[in-house]
């Protein structure tokens, strides 16, 4: 693979992520819509589903907040690349910003000066992991600010494992309509301060229809709040709860809740 081909792969991947919602996400929205009874909630669902269709048909971004871009790469250890893969991703992001187009969202944290190409200090976020084999898997997760701004990390007490569920539910209750519900809830339990957050973010890459018993239990508790789509009431506040775990220090219990809007955009490619 040549450098320029890789840049094009990144551009295509971003275009797909921004314009086509993953099938499992659309399915989760449709299932909820069928069960929703609240009139205003149904109206919101109708607009959401129509918007998903328009974006796909016209190949335009689903949401104007095309997010801060996070890339997760799994690189086969047998692979040898003769170019700078991080630079290729950054160039792909710059190109996609013009071509898709993406909204330029990356600004300096203090001066708020916009780089106008979605790149900057440590942005896009690029996570590299080594795996067996000779292939590369690239996943991209564009993350909007409405949902990111209400995400929370808490260093809980080791004896508070039973309170994890209520911490997640309280976080969602506090967020209300701000993160564009119905939301997807990525959770990281354990690890360290930073690892918990990363686990929570990576949980959002999972298939949203596959939940274990505890995840379903948390989801049910969240939906009993009836915040509803856009915080305007209804049966569906969240569509999925996805929890990833890591071992942690015997004295700590970090828990991170990364909230994602209904437009749970992601795309992946294996080269």
């Amino acid at each position: 693979m040549e450098y320029h081909d890789f840049v094009e792969v990144v551009v295509d991947l971003l275009k797909k992520a921004q314009t086509e919602l993953p099938e499992d996400v659309v399915e989760a929205i449709k299932i909820a819509y069928e069960q929703e009874e609240n009139e205003i909630a149904r109206k919101n669902f109708e607009i959401i589903l129509k918007n998903v269709e328009v974006a796909k048909k016209k190949k335009i971004p689903i949401c104007q907040d095309t997010g801060i871009l996070a890339f997760f790469l799994e690189i086969g250890r047998e692979l040898c690349l003769d170019f700078d893969i991080k630079k290729a991703i950054i160039d792909g992001v710059k190109k996609a910003t013009k071509e898709v187009p993406l909204r330029p969202n990356a600004v300096h944290p203090i001066t708020r000066e916009n780089s106008n190409d979605n790149t900057g200090l440590f942005i896009p976020y690029i996570d590299l992991d080594l795996v067996e084999g000779d292939r590369i898997k690239i996943s991209v997760l564009p993350k909007g600010a409405g949902s990111e701004n209400v995400s929370v990390l808490k260093m809980m007490l080791p004896s508070d494992a039973k309170k994890i569920k209520s911490f997640i539910v309280e976080t969602v209750a506090l967020a209300g309509g701000k993160p564009c519900p119905p939301i997807f809830v990525g959770v990281g339990v354990g690890g360290t301060f930073d690892l918990a957050a990363k686990l929570a973010k990576k949980a959002l890459l999972r298939n949203v229809l596959k939940m274990d018993e505890f995840e379903k239990e948390v989801l049910e508790a969240i939906n009993s709040l009836e915040i509803g789509p856009m915080g305007m009431g209804g049966k569906f506040t969240a569509l999925s709860v996805l929890i990833n775990y890591a071992h942690c220090h015997t004295a700590s219990l970090p828990v991170a809740v990364n909230i994602q809007c209904w437009a749970n955009r992601r795309a992946e490619v294996i080269l």
């Binding site: 129509k50 918007n51 328009v54 974006a55 907040d65």
Partner: peptide, 13 residues
């Protein structure tokens, strides 16, 4: 007035 969040493509129409 509330417009459904995230429905940017439809709004543009």
């Amino acid at each position: 007035l509330a417009f459904t969040g995230g429905a940017g493509a439809l709004a543009a129409e």
